[in-house]
Computed example of a mutant assay.
Amino acid sequence: MEIKNIVVIGAGLMGMGVVQVSLQKGYKVTVVDIKDEFIDRGVSGLKKGLDRLEQKGRLGEGVTTASILEKMSTTTDLAAAVKDADLILEAVIENMKIKQDVFKTCADNAPDHCIIATNTSSMSVTEIANASGKADKCVGIHFFNPVPLMRLVEIIKGDGTSDETMDIAVAWAEGLPCRGKRYCPRVLKDRPGFIANRMIAPGFVLMNWAFDEAVAKGVTWEELEADTVKETSPMGFLELGDYVGHDTYYHINNYYAKTLSPDFTPGKAYTEMYETKKLGRKVGQGFFDWTQGRPKIDRSKKAGIVTAEQLDAIEANEGCRLLEEGVVKNWQVIDDTMMAGFNRPGVMELATQNYEKWSTLLAELAAKIGKDYIKPCEFLKSGKFVGMK
C-alpha cells in the first residue's frame, strides 16, 4: 500500500514533530485537534522550527517553509479529516478512554485500507485497537521527542495487528527524515512500556524509595543526582526526570502500578512534587531550577543512598524480563534501542559479564527497600539471556 495522505491527531509537541517530518518527506498532512487555539499554537511552533532550518539551508535546495506548509491542512472535525487517509497517527493525552474514542471515530470514517496508529508511550496498543473493530489495521508507532532529532521509533504489534500492517508501519517510519538513520525495532508483544520506557521504568521503584530517604536525611537533590550519574549518560536520573516532565512519569508509574506491580506506586516525596506542580523543565522548576536554562548541577558530592550500578542492574533485570515475555527475541535489540532512544549504551552486553554479581546485588537491594519487583528474574539469575544476542 502506498501512503500519500496522513492525519495526525494532537497538535502538541509530539504530534507536530510527526507533522514536520511527514511534511519534509513530502506527504500531504492534516492536523486535527479539539480546539483551533491548540492547532494555531502547534502550527506557530512548527513554522518557527522550519524557518530556522530554512535559514540554515537544511530544508534542501529550493525548499522553503512556505512550500512545505502548502501540503498541510488543519481542522477540528476528526470524522471529515480521515475520509481519505492512508495512515492516521494519534498523539493525544495518555488517557485510555480518549484514545479508544479517537480510534472508533477513525475506524468508522476512514477508508478500509487505512492504518490507524497510536503514539502511546506505555498503554496497551491491543486495548486501544479493540475499540476500533479493525484491530488488524491498528499498530503502535511510538516516537520520541524531539521527533526530528530522535532516531528511535518503536513499532508495536497489538494482539490483532497483521504482519502487513507491521511491515507498512516500519517502512514508513524508517523513511522519515532525522538526524542520522532511524532505528525502528519491532516490539513483538504488547506489554507496558514496550522496550525503551520499560527498561528505565523500574529505576523509579528504587528512586521513589530514594527520594523519601533523601528528604528524611536532609540530603540535597544535587547530592542524590550525583549518586545516579555515570560516564556514559548525558544526565542523571533526577535531571532526566525534570527534562521529560514529572507529570508524565507520575501518570506512567501509576499505570505500571496497575499493570506490572504495586511497587511502582509513586512515593510521598514524588507525589508531593507532582501535586505542587514542580513538573520540571517545562514549568521552570522540578528537582532543579530551569528558569535560566539548563541548570548547572554540582555533582561533586554524593548522597550515598543509591549507586549507578544498582540502576544498571535493575535495568538489565528488566531487559531479561522482556526476553522472558517475548517482547524481543534478542538483547542486542534492547541495547540498540537504548542507544537510539536515550543516546547512551544499553546495559545488556555489560550484564553478560556481571549477571551473577548483579543477581546478588538485586536480591539484597529488594530485601533492603522492601520491593519484590526488583528481585532478579530467572533469565538474569541463570544467565540464560547471555546466548540470546
Rank of each mutant, 00 (worst) to 15 (best):
T291Y: 07
K278D: 07
F288W: 13
G241L: 03
G203N: 11
P202L: 07
K329E: 15
I314S: 01
N317F: 08
E239Q: 15
T220G: 11
L311T: 03
V215Y: 08
D336T: 05
M273S: 03
P266R: 02
I314D: 00
R299C: 10
V219S: 12
E325W: 15
G218K: 14
D336V: 03
Q292H: 15
R321A: 09
I314L: 02
I252W: 02
E318K: 01
H251S: 15
N330C: 13
C320D: 06
T271P: 08
V229T: 09
E223T: 04
E324Q: 15
G341A: 14
M339T: 10
N254Y: 14
Q285F: 07
F342T: 02
E239T: 14
V219P: 03
L224Y: 06
F237G: 02
E222T: 12
D212K: 00
E318G: 00
E213V: 10
E275V: 04
Y249S: 14
K278F: 06
K258C: 13
Y249C: 11
I334Q: 00
M339Q: 11
G286H: 02
I314A: 01
D335I: 04
R198W: 08
V229Q: 14
M199E: 02
L322Q: 13
I334H: 00
K230F: 11
M207P: 03
M273C: 04
Q285I: 14
A316D: 02
M273V: 04
L206Y: 07
T259I: 12
V219Q: 12
K277V: 09
E309N: 11
Y256R: 06
D298G: 07
E222V: 10
V327W: 07
E318W: 01
M273E: 02
E225G: 04
G286Q: 04
A214M: 10
L322M: 15
S300M: 09
I334A: 00
I334D: 00
I314H: 01
R321S: 10
